[in-house]
Design a binder for these strands. Structure first.
Lengths: 111, 111
DNA sequence: ACTGAGGTACGAAACTTTTCGTACCTTGGC
DNA sequence: GCCAAGGTACGAAAAGTTTCGTACCTCAGT
């Protein structure tokens, strides 16, 4: 069954402030890092991220990501899909998605 | 008179979360955008940014920027200087500083 | 039609951030 | 020595964020 896409900002209306605010939270950044790491940009189920928080809180975080224009949310009624808006992000803020991978890849330098 | 450099994280200890949290605030992002735009990376006085907030609040914001490792603060006693840590930032998060300029420069891109 | 899994709405508690008032410190110039 | 300009410390109000409880919705399978 075809789901309907929930509304987010247009590609040319992405706001850097909203994006940084969205990425400031550890849980949301974890989601974005996982999405950015998958070069195939396939749709993922919303509970495939193993977030250690309740589902109400997850609803909140996914909404913030969508409203920042970072992901599309596809509503299937009793299930939800999420997909990275890679093309739009790369166009508006080139290098941002690469940055997300940098931290984990860089290695754990002891102080 | 030589001022003394206030402590911030080491170059290899920059944290992406702290950086995004620092850049999530409009005032701090404004400061960083101005600093990033000056390719000479010269030291600037702390009240040369025309922030529409009280000096106590400015103290707070500059501290957040320093603790995120984005700037050095130089204390002259009755005056303070601030300088972008461009090399450290470029090394840890290449492309980040370019991103800060993107919004103002990119402007209204026709899609 | 019932049930169960996944999701949302609303509201409240806990926590964090931003902001500023009052009081105080530091340096340079008089 | 005194003052003014620039800055900090501490505390508290205001505002924003994160979290979850309770109640409810939606679809798939039976």
């Amino acid at each position: 069954m075809t789901g309907k896409n929930l509304a987010g900002p247009k590609a040319d209306a992405l706001d850097l402030g909203a994006v940084f605010r969205a990425l400031a939270d550890e849980h949301r950044r974890s989601v974005m890092t996982q999405l950015a790491a998958d070069r195939s940009d396939s749709e993922r189920g919303c509970n495939s991220f193993n977030l250690p928080i309740s589902k109400q809180t997850q609803t909140h975080h996914f909404r913030v990501l969508r409203e920042a224009g970072l992901v599309d949310e596809i509503d299937y009624g009793n299930r939800k899909g999420i997909r990275l808006r890679r093309a739009d992000i790369d166009k508006a803020f080139p290098g941002l998605l690469t940055l997300l991978g940098a931290q984990s890849e860089g290695g754990t330098a002891p102080r």
